[in-house]
Simulated scan of single mutants.
Amino acid sequence: MQQVQGVVATGKGAAVGLETIRVPDPGPGEALVKVEACGVCHTDLHYREGGIGEDFPFLLGHEAAGRVESVGPDVTEVRPGDFVILNWRAVCGRCRACRRGRPWYCFDTHNARQKMTLADGRELSPALGIGAFAQKTLVAAGQCTVVDERVPPAVAGLLGCGVMAGIGAAVNTGQVGRGDSVAVIGCGGVGAAAIAGSRLAGAARIIAVDVDDRKLATAREIGATHTVNSRSTDPVAAIRELTSGFGADVVIEAVGRPETYEQAFYARDLAGTVVLVGVPTPEMKLELPLLDVFGRGGSLKSSWYGDCLPSRDFPLLVDLHLQGRLVLGAFVSETITLDGVEKAFERMRRGEVLRSVVLL
């Protein structure tokens, strides 16, 4: 058992703070990881606001990279000293999806069995089964993906959630191909990553849509060929105008709201694809004319974690970064310390950052 410092959300809407965390020694199938960097993701803010569950207290943080410090019995995937990116979908290898050769759809992903606790013994709920706003965290060994240690931790960790979700939405789910036209609605961290993924896939036209000119400027730096401020311009009309009146081959909705999903639906070409990667809230409803769904053809897809397989995709994206083909540093707006997470949430709310990254 070890004691470390970690960022905890103790109640719905309450400011987060540093607490003493008790971390068990790894048991069978588990690994203890010394966290080196962890991105501040919107999902962490959703936990703080009670938008994901009410199992407070939450140990926040999940977009992380670090070093394996020790492992439990029978662990063969990783060993002490390995530099790893943490993932929140450790595949089981046994469920119907895994047996069919589609482990990225694994229906029985798992986390560490033992619980980390506060000093008073209260059990913590780690965000997405990780809890990496802490000096050390306990995870399932399958949540650790070994990557080239030459990649800086501050950018490596981003592949653990937002960047992977966005790139995967374009490449894996949307299957963007060379010469395609793509529109991305919402250019926060995930949307920006979808733009980067579309560029990697060879899209000819990449249209970024947002209400914030600062995010649109960043989108251009990452790979957008055109930008649309939907606060002042009808995005559907603009996307159609930029695609010879047809609409985009693939439209990626990275906001998670009914009104932006409807824009995505009508901004795609006939037989085009809509990919929902933005996360809606439970009360949201969508209404579309069923005849339009039928008549327009194509595909309406949801992208969960970018349909990624961490063991396959994380090392590949790290290699692309090291080759200079994927500039992960463009996603890092600032680096902070553990005690700066609450202020980072406020900057996130105001749209001032793409990603704040905690360095430990």
Rank of each mutant, 00 (worst) to 15 (best):
G121Q: 08
V358I: 11
A112W: 02
H62S: 00
T335A: 06
A224T: 07
S181D: 09
E259D: 15
G256Q: 06
A254W: 05
D82A: 08
I52T: 11
A14P: 08
R296C: 03
G174T: 14
I85E: 04
V84R: 11
G177P: 03
Q5W: 02
C95H: 10
S356I: 03
L291E: 08
A344F: 12
S303Q: 08
A112G: 13
P235C: 03
V255W: 13
G160M: 06
V4R: 00
P73W: 02
L338A: 07
P80V: 00
K285I: 04
R89F: 11
V277M: 08
V228P: 09
G72Q: 07
P126L: 04
A267Q: 00
R268E: 01
R205S: 14
A208N: 09
T337F: 01
G166Q: 05
A141D: 06
E149A: 14
F294G: 07
R178C: 09
D313H: 03
A238T: 12
I185N: 13
L320Y: 07
E346R: 14
P235K: 09
R122P: 05
V327D: 14
E287T: 15
T173D: 02
T76W: 01
G51K: 15
K343D: 15
R178G: 13
C95I: 06
R122E: 13
W304L: 14
A203C: 09
T260G: 10
R240S: 04
A141K: 10
V327F: 08
S356E: 00
G27P: 04
A141R: 00
L290G: 14
P24A: 10
G340I: 05
G129W: 03
A196T: 05
G177T: 07
